[in-house]
């Protein structure tokens, strides 16, 4: 390892690394958007028990749950360009950011689908029946009654997943994305103070984590205000 430990450097490094925090948020936001779409696409066939599609969805979820995110990242990074070459689309020169967002979106989507599924099934049948009884169509009943309630039920689990994936964005540098961790590697190389770099990174991730947690807990209070007995 490099030179002797200098705790003062951490204060020096944190602002430098913070300059790259937007990359983390960008990956996360892109992944969440893709993830929501994938989550519903995967959850709906299983909720409505559509044969074949439901089985494919189950295998997809099992694969996502069964493999490390790093392996998923490599599979998409090396595999997707090959796959698209078959239909004569060349994406091999696209930025590694693209591959990270796609991978994380596909991955978080698989786990989102499980949360969505559990939340939708936990809304009481009586809610749907009441919606039907006042003349709503199944689609309108789902959108207006079931979905808002499932969102409130699902939010804590969605929040946990999002925070977990936020931490996993630290692996994006392994295919060359210049995020905080990527910048940390170069900073470590130029200064030979890797340990201080990693401690600085840990502090930043921790702060981002606390920030996300407080945002989510505020959201939870908002969307589940109807459950409070008094107030």
């Amino acid at each position: 390892m490099g030179k002797s430990f200098d705790i003062g450097l951490i204060l020096d490094f944190i602002p430098k690394l913070l300059g790259y925090v937007h990359v983390t948020f960008l990956i996360l936001a892109g992944a969440i958007l893709i993830g929501i779409v994938i989550g519903f696409l995967v959850a709906l066939p299983r909720l409505y028990r559509i044969p074949v599609l439901a089985q494919i969805a189950a295998v997809y979820v099992s694969f996502i749950r069964g493999t490390p995110i790093l392996i998923q990242l490599f599979l998409i990074y090396y595999g997707l360009p090959e796959l698209l070459k078959l239909v004569s689309i060349d994406i091999s020169q696209w930025s590694s950011m693209f591959f990270v967002i796609v991978t994380y979106g596909l991955s978080i989507g698989g786990l989102f689908s499980e949360v969505i599924r559990a939340a939708v099934t936990s809304v009481e049948r009586g809610q749907t029946e009441a919606a039907y009884s006042i003349g709503m169509s199944p689609f309108v009943a789902f959108i207006r009654i079931v979905l808002p309630q499932s969102f409130a039920i699902a939010l804590p689990n969605l929040a946990n997943l999002i925070i977990a994936y936020m931490k996993d964005t630290s692996l994006a540098f392994s295919i060359g994305v210049m995020d905080m961790t990527g910048r940390g590697q170069t900073l470590g190389t130029t200064t030979s103070h890797f340990l201080e770099v990693y401690i600085s990174l840990a502090v930043i991730y921790y702060l981002v984590c606390i920030l996300l947690e407080s945002i989510f807990s505020r959201m939870e209070k908002r969307v589940s205000r109807y459950e409070r007995k008094f107030g």
Binding site: E124, G126, Q127, E129, A130, A131, Y132, S133, I134, G135, M136, V140, R144, I145, P148, Q149, A152, Y226, E227
Partner: peptide, 30 residues
């Protein structure tokens, strides 16, 4: 269903809506 209405044993009020919104829901949406 649009000719009828039902009162349920377990009430089945829409939990995420206020009392007024519960009563209005059928009128505005349906």
């Amino acid at each position: 269903r649009r000719k009828t209405a039902m009162v349920f044993q377990h009430y089945n009020l829409f939990k995420h809506k206020t009392v007024l919104q519960n009563v209005m829901e059928g009128l505005t949406v349906v």
